[in-house]
C-alpha cells in the first residue's frame, strides 16, 4: 500500500478487494456449515444404525442362548450357523464408520484452522493499512497547515508582486493537493476501520468453531482409540456368548463418542446459523457505508474545509498517540 500513490480509483479498487476477500471468507464459512450439516446427518444415521445393531445383537444373543433355542438347536443348527451374525463383524463395521467420521472431523478441524489463520492475516493486513493511512493522513495535514501558514505570511513578506503571485499560486496548489490527498487517506482510514469489525467477527466465529471442533476431536479420538483397542483385544473371543456383554460395552463407548459428535455439531450449527446471517447483514451495511464515504466531494474542498480537516486529522493523530502511550503504561 505504501508505495502506491493513493487515488480515488485505487481506493475504490482496494475497497473491492477487501469486499471480495470478505465475501470469499463468508462463502468458505458457509461451505463449512454445509459440511457440518452433512456430518450431522451422517452421525444421526450412524447412531440410528448403531442402536439397531445393539438391539439385533441382544435379540441374537437371546435367541442363541434361550431355553427354546437350546431344545431346538439340533434341528436348526445349520440354518442358525448361517443366520447368526458375527458380533466382531458388526463391531468392525460400526468402528469403521466412526473412524471415517473422526478422520473427516480431523480434516475439517485443519480446514477451520486454515480459514482462521487467513482471517487473522486479513485483520493484520487491515491494521497495517490503517496504520499507514493514518501516518499519511497526518503528513498531509501537516503540509496543509504549513501551506496555510505560508499563505497567511505571504502578505507580510517583502516581495515583488510577481513573486508574491507566483508563491501564492504555488502554496494554493500545494494546499489543494495535500487537502485532496488528506481526504483520500481519511477515507482509507475509515475504510479500514469499517472493515476491521466484520473481519474480526468472522475470524472470531471461525476461531470458536475451530476451538470447539479441535477439543471435540481430541476427546473423541481418545474414546474411539480406546474402543478400537478393546475391539481388537476382544476380537478373538468376540463371538463367545460370555463376552457379548463386554463387547456391547464397547458399542456403548462408540455410542458415547457419536453422541458427543452430534451434540457438538448441533451446537456448532446453531451458533453459525445465528451468527452468520447477522455477519452477512453487517458486512453488507458496512460496504454500503464505505461506498458512500468513498464518494468524496473533492471539488467541494475549499481552503477553510482543508484547514479544518487538517487540524482535525492532527488532533486525532495526537489523541491516538496519547491513547497508545496510556495503553503502554
Amino acid at each position: 500500500m505504501s508505495t502506491e500513490p493513493l487515488t480515488q480509483a485505487v481506493l475504490h479498487r482496494r475497497r473491492q478487494e477487501v469486499a471480495e476477500r470478505h465475501q470469499r471468507a463468508l462463502g468458505k464459512v458457509n461451505e463449512m456449515v454445509a459440511t457440518q450439516k452433512r456430518l450431522g446427518g451422517e452421525l444421526s444415521e450412524g447412531m440410528a444404525s448403531l442402536s439397531r445393531t445393539r438391539t439385533e445383537l441382544e435379540a441374537t444373543e437371546q435367541a442363541a442362548t434361550g431355553l427354546l433355542a437350546t431344545l431346538t438347536r439340533p434341528f436348526t443348527a445349520r440354518r442358525t450357523a448361517l443366520m447368526r451374525r458375527s458380533v466382531a463383524e458388526e463391531l468392525f463395521k460400526r468402528y469403521e464408520a466412526t473412524s471415517v467420521r473422526l478422520r473427516e472431523a480431523t480434516a475439517f478441524t485443519d480446514e477451520l484452522k486454515l480459514v482462521a489463520l487467513e482471517l487473522q492475516h486479513e485483520v493484520d493486513r487491515l491494521h497495517r493499512e490503517l496504520g499507514e493511512a493514518t501516518r499519511h493522513r497526518r503528513t498531509c495535514a501537516e503540509r496543509v497547515l504549513r501551506a496555510e501558514q505560508a499563505l497567511a505570511e505571504l502578505d507580510h513578506e517583502e516581495l515583488t508582486p510577481e513573486e508574491r503571485d507566483r508563491r501564492r499560486d504555488r502554496y494554493t496548489f500545494d494546499l489543494r493537493s495535500e487537502a485532496v490527498d488528506g481526504a483520500l487517506y481519511e477515507t482509507a482510514v475509515e475504510l479500514c476501520r469499517h472493515h476491521l469489525d466484520p473481519a474480526r467477527a468472522l475470524r472470531d466465529t471461525v476461531l470458536k468453531l475451530h476451538e470447539e471442533m479441535a477439543s471435540y476431536v481430541l476427546s473423541a479420538t481418545h474414546i474411539v482409540n480406546a474402543a478400537g483397542r478393546r475391539i481388537q483385544g476382544l476380537g478373538m473371543l468376540a463371538d463367545a456368548p460370555l463376552v457379548v456383554a463386554e463387547l456391547q460395552a464397547s458399542l456403548g463407548e462408540l455410542d458415547e463418542a457419536m453422541q458427543a459428535t452430534a451434540r457438538y455439531v448441533e451446537e456448532g450449527q446453531r451458533m453459525v446459523a445465528e451468527v452468520l446471517p447477522e455477519l452477512s447483514a453487517r458486512l453488507r451495511t458496512e460496504l454500503e457505508v464505505t461506498e458512500q464515504a468513498l464518494c468524496v466531494e473533492l471539488d467541494g474542498i475549499d481552503r477553510e474545509k482543508a484547514r479544518l480537516d487538517a487540524e482535525r486529522a492532527l488532533r486525532r493523530a495526537a489523541d491516538a498517540e496519547i491513547a497508545d502511550l496510556l495503553k503502554g503504561e
Binding site: 473412524s99 471415517v100 480434516a107 478400537g228 483397542r229
Partner: peptide
C-alpha cells in the same frame, strides 16, 4: 501402536483405511 505380536495394531491400520474412504 503395535500389538504383542509386534504387528501394527488394528486401530493404526484402520486410520489408513478411513483416510482411504475419504
Amino acid at each position: 501402536e503395535i500389538t504383542a505380536t509386534g504387528m501394527p495394531s488394528y486401530t493404526w491400520l484402520e486410520r489408513a483405511r478411513a483416510e482411504q474412504i475419504l
